[in-house]
Amino acid sequence: MTTFNEPEHINRLWQDAIRRDVSRGTLAIGPGGDYRLDVRKSLEALGKTLSVALGLEKGIDASTTSASVLKLGLDALFAVISLREAVFTRLTPLQLLTCMILVRSQESKDDGLNEAEGADQSPTGLTREALAKELAFYTTIDTPELFPWYLGVDRAYLEKARSALGEDGAIDNTISKLKELNRVSEDSEGRLFFVDKFVSLRLTD
């Protein structure tokens, strides 16, 4: 079985999510300057990191999946912090998990990305029913201590998402709010998609 260097792969995913924005005319030397955070790529990296930490990825060396091993370099850690500041603080836990799940559902079904048993693994969005199965899976994870600390997804975070999911009309209300925020779209067949977003950031030395 082919195995991957997961710490290196995870770092690369996070690094790819953020780039210095030279279009704004700032050519700072060092960490200061303007940056663009690709929210889609950062949510993809988030989902991948969670999945690897839980040992759910195919072809992965189990010895590389623990939170203690999945350490990030400075560039990758900056992307994580940027996601938490620019996105986590603006979305509820249930909304954030919904976006992450939709991003992963739009990747190739051959990658084995959807963890919930019986979930729709189409690479072209999710129905509400399939989304509900995925949310049920993530909000009932009983070993959040496996997640790397830098993600900010701990037991309390998942409990908030689980509590919100238990409310009447939770899925419909979450989707409606994300549509208002232009984070999610829905096609004529009722399939849900994450809407690509970039966030501009400025970091001072």
Results as ranks from 00 to 15, higher is better:
K71C: 05
V52K: 13
L56E: 13
A28S: 14
L50M: 15
E57D: 14
P31S: 03
G30I: 04
L37I: 04
S51Q: 14
G25L: 13
L56Y: 12
L50D: 08
A45R: 03
S23Q: 07
S63H: 07
L74M: 09
V22I: 04
G55K: 14
I81Y: 03
K48M: 14
A86P: 00
L72C: 07
P31M: 04
L50K: 12
G47K: 02
G59D: 02
D75H: 02
V52W: 08
L46T: 12
G32A: 15
L46P: 09
T64V: 01
L83A: 03
A79G: 07
L70T: 07
T64E: 15
V52N: 12
K41W: 01
K58D: 04
D34K: 03
V39Q: 11
L56T: 09
L54E: 15
L56H: 13
G59Q: 03
E85V: 00
K71V: 02
G59C: 01
I60D: 10
S66G: 15
A79N: 07
S68T: 13
D34R: 03
E85Q: 09
L50V: 15
F78R: 09
L56I: 05
E44I: 09
G47V: 05
L72Y: 06
S63P: 00
A53W: 00
I81T: 07
R40N: 10
A67P: 13
S68V: 11
L37Y: 08
G32W: 05
V39F: 06
K58P: 00
L77F: 11
V52R: 15
L27A: 06
A76D: 06
A53P: 03
S66A: 10
S66M: 05
D61E: 10
L27F: 09
T64C: 04
G33Y: 01
G33L: 02
D34W: 01
D75I: 00
I81K: 12
L37H: 06
A62N: 03
D38C: 05
G47W: 04
L70E: 10
A86L: 07
L46Q: 11
E44M: 15
L50G: 10
R84Q: 09
S42F: 05
T64A: 10
G30K: 05
P31T: 03
R36Q: 12
L77T: 00
D34P: 00
T49D: 13
S63V: 02
L83R: 14
G47S: 10
A28W: 02
L43V: 03
V87T: 09
L74R: 11
E57M: 13
A76S: 15
V69I: 12
E44T: 13
L72F: 06
V69C: 06
E57R: 15
A67R: 11
A28M: 08
G33C: 07
L83F: 06
I60F: 08
I60N: 04
I81C: 02
L37S: 08
T65I: 14
L43A: 03
S66C: 05
K58S: 09
S42V: 13
G32P: 05
I29K: 13
R36A: 10
L54W: 05
K71A: 15
